[in-house]
Structures are given as structure tokens and as C-alpha cells.
């Protein structure tokens, strides 16, 4: 016993410092890797395998090769949904990041009622998506009910159809999604801003550097890990948008005429409304590939290695 112990201690002592650290790293990672393998990777592999079958929840599966993928490429709905999904990404991500950074940056410097204002901006993030979608739906209504159209007609502008338009519906659906997620991004930005040691600022201020230069030379570079996180994570969230779209138009989800339908909703409907699991799995694989490529490009461009 003691000998064995002594031996292992000797083994441990014999390791170089960097080897020890590698061992520590894998020790820390052991349980998580096991967890992710069983709970996430294995089902993902199953989904990939399923995408080559015609399994429906109601019928046994058989191998169909690439049929689901060729069907997907020929499905006009898929291309419509593909376009919508990217619109959510390209409109949603920059708008919400710029807004939340501006708010966080100024909120960080405001002291009067700071706590209250911060809580107010965070409040939408705490609410239930289904309940809030209903409220937004009513904001978009035509007169005499709709708040926004009421305002437009009051200032003498024509009514807008918003959710009942194939052009305006997507931005109209996106607005509540940005609204609800803003608080989250603001908090992350504030946490990032607060993690920057104040000593850096003090040094700069003593040197009499302008606020804008401080922002550009100190704040933004030191905030980079936070920015990387938010860019990647917001992009993934917008590419995976579902709840807000589903709830705001739940009688015709993704409508009108599929102009707001994102890819995840197509997957959900294929899997759980039509029970076409094989086809849904193929869509999932495509979504997975898109997300992975987009994230890797972002990480590469932002050089986070």
C-alpha cells in the first residue's frame, strides 16, 4: 500500500511541470467529456445516421441513401427558409450588438438611477416568450386596436400591415426577438466592461487621453473575448431562432406564406407535425453544418485561438 503510494508519488514528482499541467487539464475535462459524449455527441451521430433513412415516428426506418438531401435541395420551401434564416442573422446580429454595446457603454457611466435603468433593460429577458409575443402581436394590429398603427395614423401616415405583409413580417418578427435578447447582451457587455481593471483607465486619464481614444485603444481591445463570445453566440441564437417566430404567429407559424419561417421551425414541423424524422434529421445536419461554418469563420476572423 504504502509502497505503491510512494511509487505513484515518485511518478508524479518525476513529471515535468508542464506534463503535470496537461494531466490536470484532462482530469478536469474527464467528466465533462463523458457527459457531452453520452448526452450530446451520441444523439447527434444518431441524427446524422437517421438522415439517411426514411424513419417516421410512426413507421420503421429503412436506408434511403441521399434521398432526404436531394429532396431538400429540390424543396423550394427549404430555400425560402434558408434565405429567412440568413436574414435573421444578418439583420439581427449587428443591430442587437451595436444597440446593446451602446447601451452598456453609456449605462456603465451613468450613476443616477443606474440600478433601475439596468433592471428595466434586463426585464424583457426575464419574461415568457409566449406571453410577450401576444402583446407584440397586438402592437402590430391595424387600427382601432394596434398601438403602432394608431400612432402612424395619428401623425398622418398610412397604416402598415406589418405581420400581414410578406415584406414587413420578417423585420416585425425580428424586433421582439432583438427586444427580448438585448438585456442579455447588455449584461454580458457590462460584465466585460467591469472586468477591465480600472487601473488602465486611470493611467490613460492621467495622461489626458480623450474618451474616444480610450474606447478605441483600451476598452475595445480588452473587451475582445466578450465581443467574440457575443458575436458567436448571438449568431448561433439568430440562426436558431424559433420561439419568437412560433409564438407571434401561432395560427400560421412562419407565415404569411412562409416568409418568416426559420430553419429550426421547418425542422420542428417536419419532425413533430408530419413525423417525418428522416427528413427532419437531414435538415438538422444542414443546419449543423451552417452553424459550424459560420462560427468557425467568426472565430478565425476574430482570431480567437
Amino acid at each position: 500500500m504504502i509502497a505503491a503510494r510512494a511509487k505513484s508519488t515518485r511518478l508524479w514528482d518525476g513529471l515535468s511541470l508542464s506534463h503535470k499541467r496537461v494531466l490536470w487539464a484532462w482530469t478536469f475535462l474527464a467528466i465533462p467529456i463523458l457527459f457531452y459524449s453520452v448526452i450530446r455527441f451520441w444523439p447527434t451521430l444518431q441524427a446524422i445516421a437517421l438522415s439517411f433513412t426514411n424513419w417516421s415516428l410512426m413507421r420503421p426506418a429503412s436506408f434511403v441513401g441521399l434521398e432526404n438531401y436531394t429532396r431538400l435541395v429540390q424543396d423550394p420551401l427549404f430555400w425560402q427558409v434558408f434565405r429567412n434564416t440568413f436574414l435573421y442573422l444578418i439583420i439581427g446580429t449587428p443591430i442587437s450588438l451595436l444597440l446593446s454595446f451602446a447601451i452598456a457603454y453609456y449605462l456603465d457611466r451613468v450613476q443616477f438611477m443606474h440600478g433601475l435603468i439596468r433592471a428595466i433593460y434586463f426585464l424583457p429577458f426575464l419574461t415568457t416568450a409566449a406571453a410577450m409575443a401576444w402583446v407584440w402581436r397586438w402592437f402590430y394590429q391595424p387600427v382601432p386596436i394596434g398601438v403602432i398603427n394608431g400612432f402612424l395614423t395619428w401623425v398622418g401616415l398610412p397604416q402598415q400591415p406589418f405581420l400581414r405583409s410578406t415584406v414587413q413580417a420578417l423585420p416585425a418578427v425580428l424586433a421582439p426577438a432583438v427586444w427580448a435578447g438585448l438585456g442579455f447582451q447588455i449584461i454580458i457587455f457590462i460584465a466585460g466592461l467591469r472586468a477591465i481593471p480600472t487601473s488602465y483607465y486611470e493611467a490613460a486619464r492621467i495622461d489626458g487621453v480623450s474618451e474616444f481614444t480610450i474606447l478605441r485603444r483600451i476598452t475595445l481591445p480588452l473587451l475582445k473575448p466578450t465581443i467574440v463570445f457575443l458575436v458567436v453566440f448571438s449568431s448561433i441564437s439568430f440562426l436558431r431562432i424559433f420561439d419568437q417566430v412560433y409564438n407571434i404567429n401561432f395560427n400560421d407559424p412562419g407565415g404569411p406564406l412562409n416568409t418568416t419561417k426559420p430553419l429550426v421551425m421547418m425542422i420542428y414541423q417536419t419532425a413533430f407535425k408530419s413525423f417525418d424524422m428522416g427528413y427532419a434529421a437531414a435538415q438538422t445536419v444542414v443546419l449543423f453544418a451552417i452553424l459550424l461554418v459560420v462560427s468557425l469563420i467568426q472565430l478565425r476572423v476574430l482570431k480567437d485561438r
Binding site: R164, S165, D252, P256, L257
Partner: peptide, 9 residues
């Protein structure tokens, strides 16, 4: 639903 929407929208 889509049929009617195509006509109306």
C-alpha cells in the same frame, strides 16, 4: 391558408 394569402397579400 397559403392559397388565400397568395390572393389577398
Amino acid at each position: 391558408i397559403d392559397m388565400v394569402n397568395r390572393v389577398l397579400l
